[in-house]
Design a protein around this nucleic acid. Structure first.
Lengths: 160, 160
DNA sequence: CCGTCATAGTTGCGCCCTCAAGTGTAGCGC
DNA sequence: GCGCTACACTTGAGGGCGCAACTATGACGG
């Protein structure tokens, strides 16, 4: 009881936070259900495939992949297990560092991605992008880009 | 091969979508971990408790609660199971309709919510709210409010 | 060469949540 | 009153994912 700090954060703008939470749940549930039904992929599966496609040589280190989709190391392991079993990615070892193993997009994976892209982009368009004008999207992107993308607290991570 | 539709959605503004996905994962993971560590609650637990607190008489129908936090019926059942076991909510029956049962915030639940609020609001402030000015938050809220909050596609749900 | 520490990845365990199916009640037309 | 459909809720099965603990390598100082 050394000091009772005055309530700093009145309910006023929690509004945007609530919208953020709610809309994310609703949208990702719907998109994931679509992908699952029509192509047997989860949203994260799709994002991983997409990241691999854009990567140099169609392959990435598992740890980098994990960061790019905001998953833990164990999460990416299991996700890739699934994609491997489905034949959409395969493992590659690294000649210079025996610790790392790459995940590489297979031809089937690339095909699957192409196949799913139509459905998915349509969904994203309908549930997200289509609700904004071009400039609004730019605004939104700028605002959202300020949010953290790692669990680390910013004040620690990017101190001067 | 009847027709190869021209690519409708160039990569241009998927940017905001990607930020949306990534930041949500990162922020909710961190906030959930905080709540879990310090109070044994998940983010959804917290949101449910909060909704109950704001509700008339501290109680809501399970189905309404489900919608308010964007969970399925079964999801809310299991979540409330946990909160009941922890003594934070209790069941109430409805005299006029035997199908519905209410979830009611207990005193312990209210106390727990109060206890967790400090931690949580600080977290939300740091990871989300604190990154914007007041007017930016208003903009963000307006933009996010256009997104769907149910799985139902808007074109069906809110046709004129 | 050897301890020490950091890093890449995997695995056991457990939670959360969804889908599909099932129960019990309400309301309605007949 | 009797089916029918609608609704609120629960349950069984299963998948996704995080945390903590563990293995295997690499890097570095002594």
């Amino acid at each position: 009881m050394t000091e009772a700090p005055a309530k700093q954060v009145p309910t006023r703008n929690l509004e945007s936070w609530i919208y953020f939470l709610r809309s994310h749940s609703a949208i990702t549930r719907e998109l994931s259900a679509q992908l699952q039904r029509e192509h047997g992929l989860t949203l994260n599966d799709y994002e991983v495939l997409l990241n691999l496609k854009h990567a140099e040589g169609g392959m990435m280190r598992r740890v980098d992949l994990a960061e790019s989709v905001v998953l833990t190391a164990s999460g990416i392991t299991r996700l890739l297990d699934g994609l491997e079993r489905a034949g959409l990615v395969c493992k590659e070892t690294c000649s210079s560092d025996a610790r790392v193993s790459y995940a590489k997009l297979t031809d089937e994976g690339a095909a699957k991605l192409r196949e799913a892209a139509g459905t998915h982009l349509r969904g994203v368009e309908e549930l997200f992008l289509g609700r904004y004008s071009g400039s609004e999207l730019a605004t939104l992107a700028e605002l959202l880009s300020r949010l953290p993308v790692t669990g680390k607290v910013a004040s620690e991570t990017c101190s001067a």
